[in-house]
Design a protein around this nucleic acid. Structure first.
Lengths: 146, 146
DNA sequence: GTCATCTATCTGTCTACTACAGTTAGATGA
DNA sequence: TCATCTAACTGTAGTAGACAGATAGATGAC
């Protein structure tokens, strides 16, 4: 077990804590909560998706996605329709309101991170973004293998 | 709003999701959960700490720490005593069992991350650890300012 | 010394997020 | 056409956390 890996682990533990704390930052008040934000991000890429596609993209249990989508439908962020090609399936699409909320939330959240890394050099920010991207890919691979 | 900041934001959103998912990885079964792990990490540095010190270190509400510590006491991970210098205060110390569990949990969690970044170069791992450290410091500053 | 005020903790209550087990309705192949 | 498979949904439960209010102990001005 090398030093660096231990450091990554402990930084990650603290990062998760602090990022969770940030979730309740006043800046994010009246924006989408994380689950709706992620579901709409998936819909942005797929246009239309069924429950299992969303669950798979976010590594969530389908029952979790069902409930999130039901809540989001009540908030008029998405619409649900029966899949004409498969009567068991539910097709989910973002509403214009959902799309607008996604954009607004993304704006606010990005502004928060812009503030957090305000005095980083562009090069460091680029490196961070790249390493996080790679880390996500590897975490995803790990989750699939286990 | 520059591109890179937007990328950092979306990578962070996904990172939080995937890391949360990892929390339930079979590898972590029968190790400390995140809250106990973090509380014991704080105690490792302070030896003895009262509730507010722990809350402050982890940016948690004191009521949250109270409950975590009560739970941990029931699991024999910590002991609580009345502060002799201040009858309102509660001093918390790790038990030998708590210390052993912290070490074991750290081992397992580090091994998971070792697996995740297995094919990274040592240089890239070092860069990741350093940038995460810096990001944590800046998130912490952000949380304090807002 | 005593009282008003401050502070450390604890309790009550609530929310967000998620999983697992079990049910149901529709699809599908022998 | 029936056994089986599968997509989604419902019931239930657990973790992690906040905020508001209660309580008991500390402290400073007088």
């Amino acid at each position: 077990m090398d030093e660096t890996t231990g450091a990554i682990e402990s930084e990650m533990a603290m990062l998760l804590r602090l990022a969770d704390r940030n979730r309740r930052s006043p800046a994010l008040e009246s924006t989408l909560d994380r689950s709706a934000y992620l579901v709409l991000s998936v819909l942005e890429q797929h246009q239309v998706a069924n429950i299992s596609t969303i669950a798979e993209a976010l590594r969530l249990d389908a029952s979790t996605v069902t409930r999130q989508v039901v809540t989001m439908e009540a908030a008029a962020l998405v619409e649900r329709r029966r899949d004409p090609a498969d009567g068991r399936g539910t097709l989910v699409v973002a509403t214009p309101h959902g799309i607008a909320q996604l954009a607004a939330t993304r704006e606010v959240r990005s502004a928060v991170y812009a503030d957090v890394v305000a005095d980083w050099s562009p090069a460091d920010r680029g490196t961070l973004a790249a390493l996080l991207h790679r880390l996500n890919a590897d975490l995803d691979r790990y989750a699939r293998r286990h």
